[in-house]
Each structure stands twice: as structure tokens, then as C-alpha cells.
């Protein structure tokens, strides 16, 4: 915890982020921790001298920010129109069933966070899934099974050491 606070403090003191808006701070913090710890909201508000209620409104309004820690692996399914007509709903169905969570939540073992995004702009390759920043195009439910299996195998290997 102490370490988190000191890291947040480093970000808060970063002058390049300016004094105008909380959003660049949130972006930095979200980038570093993949969520906004409550301490971050409080420290940024103190630094910028704005009410905490405003920061909380911003943190809950924008989809890029999350107030809960994310799983080890983030799966993002593109729900853009082009992906939709090429079958992204079936893909999402499949991943929700396989992972046992609904879009927007994290598995109980904290291994996966399943999310949707409204168009990544790679429409020619739909449906698209992004796992930990890596794009996979022309996905099918079968291919998504294979992707999951691959991650699970590497996780098992890691656990065995």
C-alpha cells in the first residue's frame, strides 16, 4: 500500500501533466495500475484543489477508467458495427460462457477481465479480440477457445515454476 501511495505521489508531482485537468492524471494512474485506487483520487484532488465528488464523477463516467483492479489478462472484444455483422455477439457469448463472467467483470481467480469496446477501427479484420494489447482478427468462437487454452497452459507452466 505504501508503495502504491508513493508511486501515485510521483505521478501527482509530474509537472508535465499540467494543472488544468484531472483526466491526464487519471490516465497515467490507470496506465500504471490498470485501475484507479481510491487513494489516487484523493491525492490528485488535493494536488489540483478540486472536490473529490468531481473526481469520482469523472472516474465513473469515462469507460477508460476503472475503480476496481483488473484481472491479470484483459480480453477486449470489439463490438463495432463491422464486427457485429461478422459475428462478434456469438464470440462474446462464447467467452462469457467459457470464463463464467459477464462483459465488464473479472473472473473470481483474478486471471481474466472480459470487456467490450465500441470499435477499434480495424473493421476489415472483424471480429477482433484484443488480449493484453495484442490484436487477433477474424476470430471465431473456436479460435477464441484456442486462445484461452494457450493462456491457461502458460499460466499452469508459470505456477509449476
Amino acid at each position: 500500500m505504501q508503495k502504491i501511495i508513493s508511486e501515485i505521489n510521483d505521478i501527482v508531482q509530474d509537472e508535465a501533466l499540467g494543472k488544468g485537468s484531472i483526466i491526464p492524471y487519471f490516465e497515467e494512474i490507470q496506465g500504471r495500475f490498470r485501475y484507479l485506487p481510491p487513494e489516487a483520487l484523493i491525492l490528485v484532488c488535493e494536488h489540483l484543489n478540486i472536490p473529490l465528488s468531481q473526481a469520482y464523477a469523472v472516474a465513473t463516467f469515462y469507460h477508460a477508467f476503472s475503480l476496481r483492479p483488473k484481472g491479470k489478462h484483459c480480453m477486449n472484444i470489439c463490438m463495432g458495427t463491422a464486427c457485429h455483422v461478422r459475428g462478434s455477439p456469438q464470440l462474446l457469448d462464447r467467452l462469457e460462457t467459457k470464463l463464467g463472467v459477464k462483459a465488464g467483470s473479472t473472473t473470481r481467480d483474478k486471471l481474466f477481465t472480459l470487456e467490450t469496446v465500441n470499435c477499434l477501427g480495424a473493421c476489415a479484420l472483424g471480429p477482433i479480440v484484443v488480449i493484453d494489447g495484442e490484436y487477433s482478427g477474424q476470430m471465431t468462437p473456436q479460435k477464441s477457445d484456442a486462445l484461452l487454452r494457450r493462456i491457461m497452459r502458460s499460466e499452469e507452466k508459470e505456477q509449476r515454476g
Binding site: P38, L41, P51, L52, S53, Q54, A55, Y56, A57, T60, F61
Partner: peptide, 23 residues
């Protein structure tokens, strides 16, 4: 004071203090 704000968006918007705890 700005003790409360409108949080979330769309149909889930509601009035709340930060962290949905008493302020």
C-alpha cells in the same frame, strides 16, 4: 461544498457522494 455529484452515465446516472459512502 460539492459534497455530491452525478456519477456514472446514461441510465445508470445517479446522485451520490464520492465512493458511494456517506460524505
Amino acid at each position: 461544498i460539492s459534497a455530491i455529484s452525478l456519477i456514472n452515465r446514461g441510465i445508470n446516472k445517479k446522485v451520490s457522494p464520492p465512493f458511494e459512502e456517506t460524505s
